[in-house]
Nucleic acid binder design. Structure first.
Lengths: 117, 117
DNA sequence: GCATTCGTGTACCAGTTAGTATACAGTACA
DNA sequence: TGTACTGTATACTAACTGGTACACGAATGC
């Protein structure tokens, strides 16, 4: 079930094809973890890293942090904080949007962004 | 900083004023934890209980689970799951709504509910 | 006035999280 | 040919999570 692992490995190897500084060892060092640990993460041999480590990894590999976090079964702290501040309001909204198709949710996003609320 | 604790205690004592079955001991038993533990939770002497325990507590005390979870610094699993399924979409939406006033968010909620999406 | 119920203090704990540290065999390359 | 880098196997762990178990003295109820 380690989509995260294979995704990370593929992403890193794809970067490595054009820049040999993207080895397990070097990426691990820049991210601030042991190479053996990154190796295990990529092979799904351990539980997903912490949010902080995932975000540093996302930066290093130039991918969306929210995407990586989602693959790790997590949600960014700052989003949680928004919900936590007004739990009833946001809980209702999110449950309402739960089953709507992407394009409908996107329409809401645009509307909010463009509208003068 | 234990808003959760004092909230729980006040809520329970308020119920107890009209029904003496809402003692620490009896509530704890119905919720499925040790009375000493519930006591410590109410006095903020320990970290907030798990999501499952909080939800059972919310049912027992007839309060909104989402509210209790928020006070405990948590967000309901089912909401996390919604975000996790479409992380980029929902991350954008939530960050867009972050600073809007309640009434504006509520307007979005109603619009989604009433509209034929 | 005695048993019951009350809230709480103290001691303990198994499982999980998020990794580290080191060693080792294969490969590249000069 | 050797040295430098590659990925990985193995062993370990400190801190945190989410509680339990039991005993105690104070208050309550009849």
């Amino acid at each position: 079930m380690s989509t995260l692992g294979t995704f990370l490995r593929e992403r890193r190897e794809s970067l490595r094809a054009e820049d040999r500084r993207y080895s397990v060892r070097q990426v691990a060092e820049r991210v601030g973890v042991q190479p053996s640990y990154l190796s295990k993460v990529e092979r799904g041999e351990v539980a997903p890293p912490s949010e902080d480590t995932l975000v540093r990894l996302a930066r290093e590999l130039a991918v969306e942090p929210d995407l990586l976090l989602a693959m790790a079964g997590k949600v960014s702290r700052d989003l949680l904080e928004v919900i936590r501040r007004r739990p009833l309001l946001f809980a209702e909204l999110i449950r309402e949007l739960k089953d709507l198709p992407d394009h409908a949710v996107l329409r809401v996003v645009r509307e909010v962004r463009d509208g003068d609320w």
